[in-house]
């Protein structure tokens, strides 16, 4: 499987998200992938990712959320990252706001890679030192370097 750091899109790393709710955060991050022509049908992508958010919480606790979608509207498996200083309510099971949000966009046919990416990212983000370093990162390059260092 491709490394997580290789899936990250530098132009889709936001260190100070403007949106204050989960739908806004998802749209803010997805917009950056759309601008890079990585999502071919924004409406279909939003429908898929928001349907999942309505069915479940993608907040996995410890201030982390991983909104994700696998759909024909996506060209290649990519990751976007956003950091919220104020925190965003993702209806996490621990009832705490999320500060670090990784958005996964995957093509319909890449199911096994998509599952593997979700699993690897979830494991990766449970490490406290990773979360601490992400909080300290000052540039998009630093964020990607942190992912590269720990994966």
């Amino acid at each position: 499987m491709e490394k997580l750091s290789a899936m990250m899109v530098q132009e889709a790393v936001v260190l100070d998200l403007k949106a204050q709710d989960k739908v806004g955060v998802i749209k803010e991050l997805a917009q950056l992938l759309i601008a890079r022509d990585l999502i071919t049908d924004p409406d279909e992508f939003y429908a898929a990712i928001l349907r999942r958010e309505n069915l479940e919480s993608t907040g996995i606790g410890s201030g982390i959320a991983i909104p994700h979608a696998r759909t024909k509207a996506v060209k290649q498996l990519v990751l976007a990252f956003g950091r919220s200083v104020a925190g965003v309510d993702f209806n996490s099971l621990d009832n705490k706001p999320c500060y670090d949000i990784f958005l996964i966009a995957a093509p319909e046919e890449k199911k096994s890679e998509y599952i593997a990416t979700l699993a690897r990212l979830s494991k990766f983000l449970r490490r406290e030192e990773v979360r601490n370093d992400l909080t300290q990162a000052k540039t998009a390059e630093e964020v990607i370097e942190i992912v590269r260092r720990y994966e």
């Binding site: 069915l55 479940e56 998509y114 599952i115 699993a119 690897r120 979830s122």
Partner: peptide
């Protein structure tokens, strides 16, 4: 160790993906 954890998440996300296809609400816990 960590590979077991990744394996566990994989299995959980496989179930989540099936749930999504079937319109079933689901939460994952490790």
């Amino acid at each position: 160790g960590s590979e077991l954890e990744e394996h566990a998440w994989s299995r959980l996300y496989e179930i989540e993906d099936d749930a999504f296809e079937q319109n079933v609400r689901i939460s994952l816990l490790l």
